[in-house]
C-alpha cells in the first residue's frame, strides 16, 4: 500500500493518463458525520473489457512490459478493504473507467492525506494536455480546480512550466488547508 492518499490518487490518475484519457475528474470527499473518506477518479480513457477488469483486480496483473506485476489497483483495493470501506471499479472499453475507494475516515489503517498539492501538480506536469477537474469537499466546504480554466488565465503560457507547476502545488496546499482537509 502507498503511504498516503495523495500518492494513491496520483498513482491511479497515472493509470488514466496511460489509458489515453483526455479528461479526468478527481474527487476527494470527507464527511465527518458519516465517518467517510472517499477518493473517486473518473476518466474517458480506453477502458477495460470484462476479462481485463477481472484480471487487474487479482494481484498483481499488469500490461506493463518492464515487470510482471501491477501494483496500483491491488493497492487501492487493499486500502479500501483494510479501512472497512468499499472498492468500486467500473470500466467500458472505449468509454472510460471509474475507480472509487471509500474508507472509514477515522479507521486505524487509514493513511494520512499526504501532500495533495504536490500530487496534483505532479499529475498536471506529466499530462498538461489532459483536462483535469479536481474537487475536494470537507463537510460543507469545497475547493475546485480546473486545468482548462487555468490555461485560459495563463493565456498561452505553458501549464507545465516549472513556475506554474510550483504555483499550483502551493495554491492547492493553501486551499485545502482553508477547507480544513488534511
Amino acid at each position: 500500500m502507498l503511504a498516503d492518499i495523495a500518492s494513491t490518487m496520483l498513482d491511479l490518475a497515472n493509470n488514466s493518463v496511460r489509458a489515453k484519457a483526455t479528461s479526468l475528474r478527481i474527487r476527494l470527499v470527507e464527511e465527518e458525520d458519516k465517518n467517510r473518506f472517499l477518493l473517486w477518479i473518473k476518466d474517458n480513457g480506453q477502458g477495460m473489457d470484462r476479462k481485463l477488469l477481472e484480471k487487474v483486480q487479482s494481484p498483481f496483473f499488469t500490461t506493463r512490459t518492464t515487470r510482471k506485476i501491477g501494483l496500483g489497483i491491488p493497492f487501492a483495493k487493499e486500502l479500501a478493504q483494510l479501512c472497512e470501506g468499499r472498492f468500486c471499479l467500473k470500466s467500458k472499453p472505449g468509454q472510460g473507467t471509474l475507480i472509487a475507494i471509500e474508507m472509514k475516515a477515522d479507521h486505524w489503517d487509514r493513511p494520512p492525506l499526504g501532500d495533495v498539492g504536490e500530487a496534483l501538480s505532479t499529475l498536471i506536469q506529466s499530462a498538461p494536455e489532459v483536462e483535469i477537474r479536481f474537487g475536494a469537499k470537507k463537510n460543507q466546504k469545497r475547493f475546485t480546480l480546473n486545468t482548462t480554466k487555468l490555461k485560459e488565465l495563463l493565456d498561452g503560457v505553458r501549464l507545465d512550466s516549472p513556475d506554474v507547476i510550483l504555483w499550483i502545488k502551493d495554491y492547492v496546499r493553501q486551499e485545502l488547508t482553508k477547507i480544513e482537509m488534511r
Binding site: 500518492s7 501491477g70 504536490e118
Partner: peptide
Amino acid sequence: MATCGIAAGARPVLNALL
C-alpha cells in the same frame, strides 16, 4: 513515476528538480 517510483518517493524528487 510508476507505483514503484511513487512508493519510493519520486514525487518530492520531481518537485525538487522543478
